[in-house]
Design a protein around this nucleic acid. Structure first.
Lengths: 267, 267
DNA sequence: ACAATAGTGTCTCTTAGACACTATATG
DNA sequence: CATATAGTGTCTAAGAGACACTATTGT
């Protein structure tokens, strides 16, 4: 089958000139709004246009390449220069270790001929869910990287086919919240049910009934577990202190939290 | 960002030597058993081992490459040599046009360094659902291609990381039956509810309650629509003639058909 | 005091699934 | 007639969602 072709590939001249890159749809929630990490392209093609962070795959796994690109664009590092490791999840506020808590998963691969005008590029897109991260460090690889509300980004013409990749990533994110506990990836290690509800509201773009959401979340086995403690203060304009929870051990939600108004017209 | 790297890529010497292939997990149901299309490798590495059909991506979309590979390995063709087109869905029994009814979707991309001992190969895996197809034509590209029950294939050590790809494909197929009408891709254009139930039973590996399944399928809007006619004969050992249905226009099932015993332990 | 929010109680409606039953075909 | 299957009726338990209510805090 592919054996003959592989042998042929050993001849550098015959080898099809295909570049493999990763592009990352990194999502976070800042000030209650779902935002995506975008970089501004400095050169042609699409100079000045916004694009998803990404780059070539080196001698590494695809997952590692995506994590590396995310680290380079944000200025954050998975574990400080591969030297220390402990405490990574303990100081999510610092730059070092902050990436340890992001959820990263493969989204889809885009490889239409002509999607890059210069040459054949096959891009493996990734989807990242991150808790609120500091602003990207200007000294990073990217000329200018910034978080942008997804509504704004969707209206903007992005470089290459990144508009479609972003749309696919958003749809995946919305669907994943239904049957996976990944909403916890958007909040800190300890969170209130209201914070979790804010995540769902931001991603789905609609408010959820506070009481029913509360009961539902607690009824799903392994979604969250109580820490025993509560917030130090109530709401800004009053209200009781909320109990704190941490992510449970469930990998899927049984039963799922279904999106309201999953319009029958979606068909 | 990736601009400098792309410029560097123009120098053939600098270019990272990565090959891009597609591999297809093609599933069908024959004699009530879920089967997967496998080919036997003729040469090293993994000579004699079974592998998923696949090959290099040419100057075509990834989807087209997957469809082409599937066509080459099965001896079937989407529409006879790109000349005629009409009637493709009307004669599913013939070789020409039989591929027009297969559902093909991207599964995942596998690119670990070392997954191919010869060089860096990034493989975009596809998942195909097909109605019962004729045996692969021996004169095709593949040395030997054949349909094998997935249970058998899962016990066999496949070439490369194809065992994992197959496992991922099976899990995707099982999940997709829940919320998508893709079960209809495994049967003919006209089918009975019992045939549809047999698809679910084969893919999920467990029997379903006939009565409840019947009512459930008919209650999901757009899943199936009646043709008005019935089968010519009843069951082999008696029974009434069953009504015939065709696939409806729904793209997702609302509400979904949930797998029984989605063990809470899955977590 | 007032306003805002956390968390709970309760009711209704829908649905999954178990079970039973009839109707219709084949041998 | 015996038997197998298509299709329907009905009951129960569980969950989603609407609504209402209490409790607790900050201004």
């Amino acid at each position: 089958m592919d054996e003959q072709e592989f042998l042929a590939a050993y001849d550098p001249g015959d080898f099809p000139a295909v570049a493999v890159t990763v592009d990352v749809v990194a999502l976070t929630i800042r000030e209650g709004v779902l935002q995506v990490l975008l970089v501004e392209r400095g050169e042609a093609p699409f100079a000045g246009r916004l694009a998803l962070p990404g780059g070539f795959v080196g001698d590494e796994t695809l997952d590692a390449a995506a994590l590396r690109e995310l680290a380079e664009e944000t200025g954050l590092h998975p574990d400080a220069g591969a030297s220390r490791r402990a405490g990574a999840a303990d100081d999510p506020g610092t730059r070092n270790g902050a990436l340890a808590r992001v959820h990263l998963e493969q989204l889809k691969t885009y490889g239409d001929p002509g999607r890059d005008p210069r040459m054949r590029v096959v891009s493996v897109a990734y989807l990242a869910f991150a808790p609120s991260l500091p602003d990207p460090r200007p000294g990073g690889d990217a000329a200018g990287a910034a978080w942008l509300p997804v509504a704004t980004a969707a209206e903007t013409a992005l470089a290459f086919d990144h508009g479609r990749i972003l749309a696919d990533g958003l749809e995946r994110a919305r669907a994943k919240l239904e049957y996976s506990p990944l909403a916890t990836a958007f909040v800190g290690t300890e969170f209130t049910i209201a914070e979790l509800r804010a995540v769902y509201a931001a991603v789905w773009g609609e408010d959820l009934h506070a009481g029913n959401f509360h009961r539902k979340v607690l009824s799903v086995p392994g979604f969250v577990e109580s820490t025993g403690s509560t917030t130090a203060r109530g709401g800004e304009r009053g209200g009781p202190r909320a109990k704190l929870y941490r992510a449970g051990d469930a990998r899927v939600l049984h039963p799922p939290l279904l999106r309201p108004a999953s319009e029958d017209g979606v068909r």
